[in-house]
């Protein structure tokens, strides 16, 4: 059994949070650059140019990319031959989150749902983190992280269709969700689509789909084709960068598909803004 000290996890988590707050991942940067070249609208082109300038300034001067530095979302795969010593893995991830957000001057955005009281002085600075655990074979811990902003989360939706809806129903539904969202989720967006499973499995899959690198190809050829089809349809909407009209509404569509019940076809659409801050580490 491999032992990993609590503090090793805290430091690793803190490091990726500090880094992600200011350094846009290369895949996102490259995708924005391509979108700027492809964009037909001069107004939207200028917006994307500002986003690239913003990424350069944030990286060089270590300023947060956006004032909405998000809730911290993690997908963690824990090897069955690993033991964290000196504390719980979950506590270590939360501690690393708090230290990262506070020390890097990122915004504390968690609050109580009804009083809207900020939790920074009670529960902790931008705590609790949202953590999804899985157990796998091996002696490592793999941590995938993304900062998830509010504007794009607010337009996300899920629905359980009858099986007859099929691919056609899914394409139409995603298009409807993105059309209704307009400029509010800060396009050009990434669209995560979770298909199948149960109601909650579909939503978690749609979230996890956003952690994939933009520009990567879905290993399932059928899903890869469906991603392209939905992307083409979404970009016909004309929403464009920040909703100002244009051809580049979405940078990518990512699908995660699961086996499901014979009676249902769950579909979830989770949207990520253009500032797709995501990364992963293996300890």
């Amino acid at each position: 059994m491999r032992e990993i000290p609590f503090d090793t996890i805290v430091k690793a988590v803190k490091d990726i949070i500090v880094y992600s707050g200011t350094d846009l991942p290369q895949d996102t940067y490259d995708a924005l650059k391509k979108a700027m070249e492809d964009e037909q609208s001069p107004v939207a082109k200028n917006v994307i140019k500002q986003l690239l300038e913003n990424a350069d300034i944030a990286k060089d001067e270590k300023r947060p990319l956006c004032q909405d530095t998000g809730l911290a979302v993690f997908f963690v795969k824990v090897g069955d031959e690993v033991k964290v010593t000196g504390g719980l893995l979950k506590d270590a991830i939360n501690k690393g989150t708090e230290e990262g957000y506070r020390d890097a001057y990122l915004r504390a955005s968690t609050c109580e749902p009804f009083s809207r009281a900020n939790l920074k002085d009670t529960v902790g600075y931008n705590l609790p983190a949202i953590i999804h655990f899985d157990i796998v074979a091996g002696d490592k811990i793999e941590i995938e992280y993304a900062a998830k902003g509010g504007g794009s989360e607010n337009v996300s939706r899920a629905k359980v269709f009858p099986p007859a809806a099929g691919k056609e129903g899914i394409v139409a539904y995603v298009k409807e969700v993105i059309s209704d969202a307009g400029g509010n989720p800060c396009p050009p967006i990434t669209v995560g689509v979770g298909i199948g499973g149960t109601f909650e499995k579909a939503t978690i899959s749609s979230k996890h789909a956003l952690f994939r690198d933009i520009g990567s190809v879905n290993p399932d050829p059928e899903m890869a084709a469906l991603e392209q089809e939905i992307l083409t349809e979404v970009n016909k909407l004309g929403i464009g960068a920040m909703g100002m009209g244009g051809t580049q509404t979405a940078l990518a569509v990512h699908i995660e598909s699961n086996p499901c019940h014979i009676a249902s076809l769950p579909v979830s659409v989770n949207v990520q803004c253009h500032s797709s801050r995501h990364t992963h580490i293996t300890i």
Partner: peptide, 13 residues
């Protein structure tokens, strides 16, 4: 006026 959402570092500067 619309400012560019998510360009917080650029605008802050």
């Amino acid at each position: 006026f619309g400012a560019t959402g998510g360009a917080g570092a650029l605008l802050g500067k």
